[in-house]
Structures are given as C-alpha cells and as structure tokens.
C-alpha cells in the first residue's frame, strides 16, 4: 500500500476498510495543509472535497445574521470535515477554518462520487461510515438548539 493509502486506512473514520476500497479511495486523496486562521472552505462555495483531519483542530463557523460570526463546532484530529459533497447542489453550508496548523487528507468529491456510482459496494460502505457521523451531529445540533444551559432552571 502506498503512503496515502496507508494514511487513509489509519484514519479512525476508515477503520477496518477493505484493501480494494482503500486503493479506490486513495486514488481520490491528496495531502493538504492549512495555517492557523486559514479558511479550509467558505459558505456557498463548491463542496468539492471532504477532509480527514490528521493534525490540528478546525472550527465550523456560521454568520449569525447582523452579528459576528459564531463558532458552532470544533473538530479534532481523527474526525472528518464536511458532508455537503454528498448532497446536491454540493455547496458548503458554513465556513471551516483552521484553529491551529491543520494537516489533512483531502478527498476529491467528484472522484469519490464517480467511484461510488460505479461501485455501489464502496458507496454503501461509505454511507455506513457517514450516517452515524451525521446522526451524531444532528443529535448535537438538537441539544444546542434546546439551549439547555441557557434555560432558567
């Protein structure tokens, strides 16, 4: 397995991935680096990748209307960044910014979507990894929406 394939396979998101899938995914992968404060992507831009965070943390930010930008989630190494590449019209819904220097694997969205169309077993494997992530984030968003600490109790 080449370097990228090994890095992909060692990332917690892809734990236990079958060898043929690793190679397919590694074919869409490249190493990327962002300095602290750099945007990884901006709201409204094309969601043409998703990221496996390896080092450094990232903040997800959204505009609160008139007010300043609000961070609603931070992500640590070992987590993934971005799901909009899966959902048409493939645009980012928020900004992502590097808090520290971030090293990550970027997976090209068009390349991955094409491979998933061609190989539904790969697509299904990816879905089984993504859906629990999405469900956990939806649960977290619900709790944040409830503003549990802000309530007068």
């Amino acid at each position: 397995m080449d370097g990228l394939g090994r890095i992909v396979a060692e990332h917690p998101f892809f734990a236990g991935l079958d060898l043929p899938f690793r190679e397919l995914i590694a074919g869409c992968a490249k190493n990327v680096r962002f300095e602290a404060g750099d945007y990884i992507f901006r709201e409204g831009a094309d969601a043409n990748a998703f990221y496996l965070l390896r080092d450094g943390r990232a903040a997800l930010e959204i505009s609160s209307g008139e007010g300043p930008m609000v961070t609603f989630q931070t992500l640590d190494p070992g987590q993934i960044l971005g799901a909009s590449w899966l959902v048409p019209p493939y645009k980012w819904d928020f900004d992502a910014r590097a808090i520290d220097r971030v090293r990550a694997i970027s997976l090209d969205a068009v390349c991955l979507r094409t491979k998933c169309e061609e190989n539904h077993d790969l697509g299904w494997d990816l879905m089984k990894r993504f859906v629990p992530e999405l469900s956990a984030r939806m649960q977290a968003a619900r709790l944040q929406l409830l503003d549990i600490y802000g309530r007068k109790s």
Partner: peptide, 17 residues
C-alpha cells in the same frame, strides 16, 4: 461551549463527545 465568537480558541460543541 455550545457556541462562541471567534475570540474563543477552545472546544465548541456539546459535552457528550
């Protein structure tokens, strides 16, 4: 914290993770 402005460099998100 559940949410923060950009001056906060700590964790943001619910406590369960």
């Amino acid at each position: 914290v559940d949410h923060a402005d950009l001056r906060w460099h700590g964790n943001v998100g619910v406590i369960t993770p």
